[in-house]
Design a protein around this nucleic acid. Structure first.
Lengths: 337, 337
DNA sequence: GTGAAAGCGCTAACAT
DNA sequence: ATGTTAGCGCTTTCAC
């Protein structure tokens, strides 16, 4: 049988207190005589009353729902999942819950998610932005919804942003290859329309320049590619007389594809490799894979803290916080040309 | 400057329609003349009106919020993250958003999360239950909140449940080792208080029995252990004259620890290994690791579908859906004794 | 200290 | 086809 939920009024009747007094007790407001408060609490238990947060925020000054939204590329990928966890850990101590969604780099999905979240009146949004234009968020911000961007800056919208040292991280990793004597270093990355892809490629070019090595576009590849595509590109590349002696892969999935291809050609002990992004078993592979990684935990925590500061009324100019990446040198980058 | 959000009344005034007509247009209810509807939609755009879903559900019959809660062990682990994604993919087409949280096998956290979610009036909850007693949920269900449990059944609470064939999956994997001639198969698993750990160990015992091999408790270990603990246990085990010729690891983290230890002792090509749970780069390791895996996608989809069926009013008895596991035989389980 | 009344933004029920 | 009124469960405001 479906009963209806007890309300504050039910608790008031049961306890003999007034509606407002019940509200005071539930919300921990001062100025209620202890005996009355106990009566109220007993009634709460007896009726199994559950406070309706949602109804409260309708009238509450500021209208805060104590809920934030988190827009990720894909909830299930390790970067997103780790970021989500960091956000959760910062939000929960404040009694704030997190709505999360996957955008799949799809502008329509992004819009539908943002609508869904704003329709539920989230207090703020933490966004790993895709390509879309974010100018339309200005109206939302006027109304009090706050925004923080992670991993990449928003487009046409100034806001607090947390990114990693993509450029410097790649630059230093490539430099270590150059120190080891590599002069032909291939680069496999994402399309240059993605901010992080741009930055990482810029780091590559910077390192080459510092090492007085000319950029050879025939050994760089920018663009989304299937495993098979990467494999065939690699086969081409590696059958050339002037084949690269080292490879830098600028992203998770690409690193995996290249590892597979190198193994298939039995070149994994011949050609040096450095990848960007965490790889779960990197140190157990043969050779262990050298990686440039982001401090996702820190990025999530800082983003959430920035969001709450804005919600608490901070008015200072929008910040760009840049979190250092880490280069973990393992056997795969010690291979000499 | 912080403006206040436009409401339906503002849209009504702007468009010249009545409040209710605006509501009809926004909610896509029939019976509004196209011309008027267009006027309303123009006003919505002009004012940048955002529907307040939350306020609506206060009055709406059934009081549905189109939001569900998902309680996971740890949002950031691959199993949880994949489950979350599957739930999201089933929920979004219905316009339902997902609140998720990590319980860390901690009853207090579980309670605080459930309170937080119910306080926001989620329509239903999908739970990967920890050890706590779920009898108290009976009151919530009377009131209309629905529950589905995944991976493990709830305690003292009957509800729809989606689990995997833990027992059968392990049994068949162990059987394949026995077929290969193994008679001494070590087992490393979680504490037997966890349902899945129990089931998996039961599968191990079943396979031994079928193979007429006596259970030797000196080569089984049940309990949570650090990497170091596992390593020292393994060292002991492997230095014995009657050392095991194969190892079964009943969980993700344990599998990793055992792989590390076997490598450290240079025994990874000597001792057969099968693990439970997905491992991201399993096929790239040397030897490639044989695994029993769950169909997390299917589990998430089925759980969400069951939840929505209940929310749609299905009254039939609570179901226990059991999803088949998959055994992927790779090189690590082909090693002979 | 406590409580009554008004109203948050919306939908249901009932006009017209 | 459209509008009016009440009221969802709560917090605010203001009175006692």
């Amino acid at each position: 049988m479906v009963r209806s939920r007890p309300t504050m009024l039910d608790v008031a009747k049961e306890s003999g207190a007034s509606l407002k007094t019940v509200s005071r007790v539930i919300n921990g407001e001062p100025g209620v005589k202890p005996e009355l408060a106990i009566k109220v609490r007993n009634a709460v238990k007896k009726l199994d009353y559950r406070h309706n947060f949602t109804a409260g925020s309708l009238r509450r000054s500021g209208g805060r729902t104590q809920t934030i939204g988190l827009l990720l590329e894909d909830i299930s990928n390790p970067f997103s999942a780790a970021l989500h966890r960091a956000v959760e850990d910062s939000a929960r101590p404040r009694g704030v819950e997190v709505l999360a969604g996957s955008m799949d780099e799809d502008a329509a999905r992004e819009e539908s998610l943002i609508n869904g979240f704003i329709g539920r009146r989230v207090d703020g949004l933490i966004v790993v932005p895709s390509l879309s234009d974010h100018a339309y968020l200005a109206n939302e911000r006027k109304i009090g919804t706050q925004f923080v961007f992670v991993d990449r800056p928003a487009k046409n919208f100034k806001a607090d942003t947390v990114t990693a040292t993509n450029r410097e991280g790649v630059r230093d990793a490539i430099a270590s290859l150059i120190v080891n004597g590599h002069k032909r270093i291939a680069y496999f990355g994402d399309v240059a329309t993605i901010y992080t892809a741009q930055e990482r490629f810029a780091g590559y070019k910077e390192a080459l320049k510092n090492g007085k090595i000319a950029l050879d576009k025939s050994i760089t590849h920018l663009g989304f590619s299937s495993d098979i595509e990467i494999e065939s590109l690699l086969v081409d590349l590696l059958s050339r007389p002037d084949r690269p002696t080292a490879i830098f892969t600028a992203q998770n999935v690409i690193t995996l594809a290249v590892i597979r291809s190198l193994r298939a050609k039995n070149l994994h002990h011949k050609i040096a490799l450095i990848g960007f992004d965490e790889l779960p078993l990197a140190e157990l592979l043969d050779p262990a894979v050298s990686l440039v990684t982001q401090d996702v935990q820190a990025m999530g925590k800082i983003a959430t803290d920035l969001l709450f500061e804005r919600l608490d009324g901070r008015k200072s100019p929008y910040e760009e916080r840049v979190i250092p990446t880490t280069f973990t040198a393992r056997a795969s980058s010690q291979i000499r040309p």
